[in-house]
Simulated assay, not measured.
Amino acid sequence: MGNLCSTLRSQLPLEYIKGKRSIPDHMKEAVNYIKKLQKNIDELSIKRDELKRNSNSSDLSSGDGDGSSSHSSTVTNCVTVLPCLGGVKVVFSSGSDDERLQLSRVMEVLLEEGLNVVSCFSTKVREKLLHTVQSEVKDFSRFDPSELQRKLNHVVMGS
């Protein structure tokens, strides 16, 4: 039993075992950690479902459902700016030949707005690329997410 408790304790992040010495304390913190992980999973599932809905609605508006593929390169893509810990997450899709140019322009706007880009990744969904850029906000008092979304929509739709 002691070995199992030791193994459990080794799996917990330091902030959950800091200063706690008894096995019941470690068990309680393990439960708290599992609850936190479950909450994170639930939040990410909701975000995933929203992105799927947004992706599906843009597919419907592009005419993908009627067998017509000639319009896929002229579809306007919208940008979603989502708050996240310490900053914002920008999500947009591109389906035209200049998706790298769109991504570059989005990065330029983020830097102009004084944001620090933390991560950027792209995923191919059907024939489109779904770009996700996470940025840190330096000064929240001077930051307007709706204005950023307006500027980014203009950049992506104007490309």
Rank of each mutant, 00 (worst) to 15 (best):
S94A: 15
L37G: 03
N56F: 06
G87S: 04
V156G: 06
D144S: 14
V90I: 13
D144R: 05
C84N: 04
N54T: 07
S72W: 07
V31T: 14
N56Y: 08
R105A: 09
T80S: 07
E50Y: 03
S70W: 15
V79K: 02
C78W: 10
R9N: 12
F143Q: 05
L111Q: 10
K36S: 08
K39T: 14
V137C: 08
D42I: 07
R142G: 02
K52M: 10
L12K: 10
N32L: 10
K18F: 08
E50D: 10
R150A: 05
I41L: 13
L130S: 12
S6M: 08
C78M: 09
L129S: 05
G95F: 00
P13C: 06
N3P: 02
L14T: 09
P24Q: 01
V88E: 02
E108V: 15
D98H: 05
D49L: 12
S146I: 08
L44G: 13
N153T: 08
K124G: 01
K138E: 05
K20L: 06
D59M: 12
G87N: 14
M157R: 15
C120N: 12
L110V: 11
T7I: 09
S73V: 06
E50Q: 13
L37C: 08
S93Y: 06
V137D: 03
P13T: 13
T132M: 14
L115T: 03
Y33E: 06
F140S: 00
E136K: 05
L110W: 00
G63Q: 06
S96M: 10
G19K: 02
